[in-house]
C-alpha cells in the first residue's frame, strides 16, 4: 500500500495547479522511490514529467508499484479543501479504486478526509533518453515568465537563440517584432537572481509561446528555472524542488523553412 505524508499540502497543490491545464487524466506511478507522472498534452507537442521523490515526504511508504489513475480536475476540487500549511497524507491500497486524502491543520484542531474515485488509465509512455544539451540556461523563474508573457502579446512563437554573447528570445508578430537578450548575472548575495549560461555549441530553436506560458504556471514551485536546449531535440524546462523532486516540461520545436 501507499502512505505518503507531506508536511505542507502546498507542494502538491502547486504541482497539480501547474499541470492541470496541460494534462487531464494521468497516472501517479508510485513505487519505493516516490511518485512519478509522465503525460503528454492532447496535441502531443508538450510533455509533463513529474517526480516527487520519497525524500520529499515524511514518512513515505510504498512497497510495490501502484498506479493511481487520476482526473486532475477532480483532484483539484479536493485539494482546494486543503490549506497550504495543512499536513497532507495520501493513502491507497495495492490495487486501488480510490485515493484517500487527509488534510490536517498544523495545530491539529481539524482533520478533513476525502476519498477520490480513481480511473483506469492506459497511458502512452515516451522513452526520453538522457541527453547532453548544447545549452543550459538557469534563470529566475519569474524572469522567464515575464519574457514569455511579454512576447506572447506580440506573437505566437518565440525563437530562443543561445550563443556566446548570451541568450536571446525573439519574436515576430503582425504588429512588429521584439526581443529580449539576457547576459550572465552573478549576484553573490542573492543567488536566486543569477543567470547562468552553459554552452557547448550555439543553438537556435523556435517554440510555441502558448505552451511556454503554460509551463510558467510552475513558477511558484521554484525561484529558478533551467532551460535545456539542443538543436536536435525538444526543449526541456525544469523546475527543481526540495528533496530532489522536480517538475519537467518537454516541448517539441517548430520547424522553420
Amino acid at each position: 500500500m501507499l502512505e505518503a505524508r507531506l508536511e505542507q499540502a502546498q507542494l502538491l497543490k502547486k504541482v497539480v495547479d501547474a499541470i492541470k491545464d496541460l494534462v487531464q487524466d494521468c497516472n501517479f506511478d508510485c513505487n519505493d522511490s516516490g511518485i512519478a507522472l509522465q503525460a503528454m498534452d492532447n496535441s502531443h507537442v508538450a510533455l509533463v514529467s513529474m517526480m516527487l521523490k520519497a525524500e520529499s515526504f515524511n514518512p513515505f511508504r510504498c512497497d510495490r508499484n501502484i498506479a493511481i489513475g487520476l482526473n486532475l480536475v477532480s483532484l483539484t476540487k479536493v485539494l482546494r479543501a486543503a490549506q497550504n500549511e495543512d499536513i497532507l497524507t495520501l493513502k491507497a491500497e495495492d490495487a486501488p479504486d480510490s485515493l484517500n486524502l487527509t488534510f490536517e491543520s498544523s495545530d491539529k484542531d481539524r482533520i478533513s478526509e476525502y476519498d477520490l474515485k480513481l480511473m483506469d488509465i492506459d497511458q502512452e509512455h515516451l522513452g526520453i533518453p538522457d541527453t547532453d544539451y548544447s545549452a543550459t540556461i538557469s534563470m529566475p523563474s519569474a524572469e522567464f515568465k515575464r519574457i514569455c508573457t511579454d512576447l506572447m502579446a506580440m506573437s505566437e512563437s518565440v525563437t530562443i537563440e543561445a550563443g556566446k554573447d548570451g541568450i536571446k528570445f525573439a519574436c515576430n508578430g503582425d504588429i512588429g517584432n521584439g526581443s529580449i537578450t539576457l547576459r550572465t548575472v552573478q549576484d553573490v548575495e542573492n543567488k536566486e537572481n543569477n543567470i547562468e549560461i552553459a554552452l557547448t555549441e550555439p543553438v537556435s530553436l523556435t517554440f510555441s509561446l502558448k505552451y511556454l506560458v503554460n509551463f510558467c504556471k510552475a513558477q511558484n514551485l521554484s525561484k529558478t528555472v533551467k532551460l535545456h536546449i539542443s538543436n536536435e531535440v525538444p526543449l526541456l524546462v525544469e523546475y527543481a524542488m526540495e528533496g530532489g523532486s522536480y517538475l519537467r516540461f518537454y516541448l517539441a520545436p517548430k520547424i522553420g523553412d
Binding site: M40, S43, H44, V45, A46, L47, E124, H125, L126, G127, I128, P129, S157, T206, S208, E232, V233, P234, Y250, A252, P253, K254, I255, G256, D257
Partner: peptide
C-alpha cells in the same frame, strides 16, 4: 506560420 513537430518524432513510445 511554421509547422509544429510532435514529440513522437523525437522520442519513442513504449
Amino acid at each position: 506560420q511554421v509547422p509544429q513537430i510532435i514529440l513522437e518524432q523525437y522520442y519513442k513510445s513504449g
